[in-house]
Write a protein that binds this DNA or RNA. Structure first.
Lengths: 349, 349
DNA sequence: TTGTAAGCGTTATCAT
DNA sequence: ATGATAACGCTTACAA
């Protein structure tokens, strides 16, 4: 391995000078071009590469961020990670250490500690829908580095967070169906304890009022936590159909629920959207190639990730300047993405 | 920050002793239990956490592996990553630094270097279908640490690799269709330059011979590299239908291609599987909730990842013992996953 | 403009 | 059984 001392020896300057030149430090400005050129050349010739790990003790900068996701095979997580990596590339110099806790709450704390042991300068963590705000605070209370939570609004400092305006998302979805002329609309909501599901429902109620739409309790069903959302969407939709409640549209908790609903509808001989329109939530990649392509509400996950990183880097800068760190919260507007699973109510039904 | 010196001072022993105890080094065995207990307790009380980064200069072990994927939103990649993380958790102590090159070849080299600067002890890289073996060798030729390539057979040392038996996979898919009684089968192959597509085709030819099946050139079409596979599958299937070539089954390059094909078939009024059976390749998660759920060939991506890590760790151990590193190659058997998109040929058509 | 030397937190060597 | 001390590769006050 070629060290900075090897370079220094080879070009006849001290390690200090070499360090200055190779890091473009402000001290390097006072060095003559000839020196710099010489240093750089010998470094190049020797194939010198600075050891990024050992920089940290003196500089106090590991240039590593920790990212904790709850399921790396979940499209929601990977889209956020995509955004994270984009922001990191633009910021330059920082890398992420990505950890998957595989939906195992106990691992969260354990892995957070592991990342801290590895001297990450900050932590960005994706909240899954069933972890509560106070739990997160409890777990993260003695973490010394800045933290940003993605996907859940954290109201208490010092945690910052970035999330989607779920209420607006719910409203957007219902508004779309109303504007198409639907009045008999079924709702497959998320499990009762899910924060985001509650927020979405709030938006739906508000929007229903705006359109003078009466919500029929018989057309409102809730997923259970134990089921997969796809299975749940399928089962609940089948039940709705069996009960013979007529409806011309269905608003699902998320895209997977919507996929399950479509399967149930088709099996019952109901075409989508000819017999029933279906709207999802999230806009996972599979929506665009589903059969039919799914109308849904996009959470713009990549922006969640990239802006989350920007917030985190900002917090890290503040922490360095000993500014006190207040928690801040960003709420992104969701976007309605209209595809082929929604249409005006047909004649059938 | 609490350092090992703080602990030493607090408990009255030297840093050496503390280090021995806290690392359970063999030297610690000769220490009396009382000492060890005392050290451990003060460490606990002070909340001491060893700085994992600075261990590396002396121990020569960063305990970091680099993982390079070509698209972190691609289900193939994330499934492999899932396997990687599983293996890492079991192995303990190692973490992965995951880098997404976003299908940008130029970034491969750049990021590989970045990872090496960060002292990764080994590299595991997922090959995408359009990078060639010699390219990979060229890029990785002066990488000093052990490397394992996932998803592409590398025949030349010192690179090791682990991949799926694509020929067997192709054969498996066709055999399934033949056994169902199909004789008029359409093939949407991958782009000509794709290694895996060629391998699969080899298996298909072999299997066709075995079943005495004549392959009709009019029913064989190839995707173009520029198109998305979903789009390509859709377009090519539409063309096949327009040409009026009768076929009762379609074997697609991969799952996305199959999804596109199903969309085209349905739009033409052909039911799946009632009018035409469709088989994909990969078994991405979307297959199980597609409409209809897709019969496909599983690459068992998680095993690709976990076994890949095991190979890499093995290589790292060998490298430490100065054993010379020969490249090794593992080829995993694919698995046929039968779902609802295939059936015996119907009466229609 | 350049160099010396101290330090970062750890582990390894060697002595006691 | 325990401790001094050097070393790892780098950055950075301070000195010249």
């Amino acid at each position: 391995m070629v060290t900075i001392r090897d370079v220094a020896k080879a070009c006849g300057f001290s390690t200090t000078t070499v360090s200055f030149v190779l890091n473009n430090s402000r001290m390097a400005r006072s060095l003559p071009e000839t020196t710099k050129a010489h240093v750089r050349q010998t470094a190049g010739e020797l194939g010198y590469r600075p050891n990024a790990l050992v920089k940290s003790p003196r500089s106090k900068q590991s240039k590593i961020l920790g990212a904790i996701v709850f399921d790396i095979t979940d499209p929601y997580c990977t889209q956020v990670l995509y955004g994270i990596q984009n922001a990191l590339r633009q910021a330059g110099s920082y890398v992420a250490m990505i950890i998957d806790i595989q939906s195992n709450r106990a691992r969260f704390k354990q892995y957070a500690r592991m990342l801290l042991d590895r001297q990450v300068e900050g932590l960005i963590a994706l909240a899954n829908p069933f972890v509560r705000e106070d739990e997160l605070h409890e777990i993260l209370k003695d973490v010394a580095v800045p933290v940003v939570i993605v996907g859940r609004e954290m109201k208490k400092a010092p945690l910052s967070s970035i999330s989607t305006d779920n209420a607006e998302g719910g409203a957007l979805a219902l508004q779309h169906l109303c504007e198409l002329g639907h009045r008999r609309i079924a709702f497959v909501r998320g499990p009762r304890t899910f924060v985001d599901s509650g927020e979405r429902w709030g938006g739906i109620i508000e929007c229903a009022a705006r359109f003078g739409l009466a919500l029929d309790r018989m057309l409102i069903v809730d997923l259970k936590r134990e089921q997969s959302y796809y299975e749940g969407g399928y089962e609940l939709t089948r039940q709705l159909l069996e009960q013979g409640q007529g409806f011309t549209a269905l608003l699902a908790y998320d895209d997977l629920t919507a996929f399950g609903a479509i399967t149930a509808l088709n099996q019952a001989g109901v075409g989508v959207p000819s017999g029933c329109s279906v709207v999802g939530f999230d806009d996972m990649p599979a929506c665009s190639y589903y059969n039919p392509p799914l109308t849904t509400v996009s959470q713009t996950m990549d922006r969640l990730g990239s802006l989350g990183v920007e917030m985190l880097l900002e917090k890290i800068r503040n922490a360095k300047e000993e500014k006190q760190n207040v928690g801040s919260h960003l709420m992104l507007k969701p976007k309605l993405v209209i595809r082929a699973s929604t249409a005006q109510p047909g004649k059938r039904f």
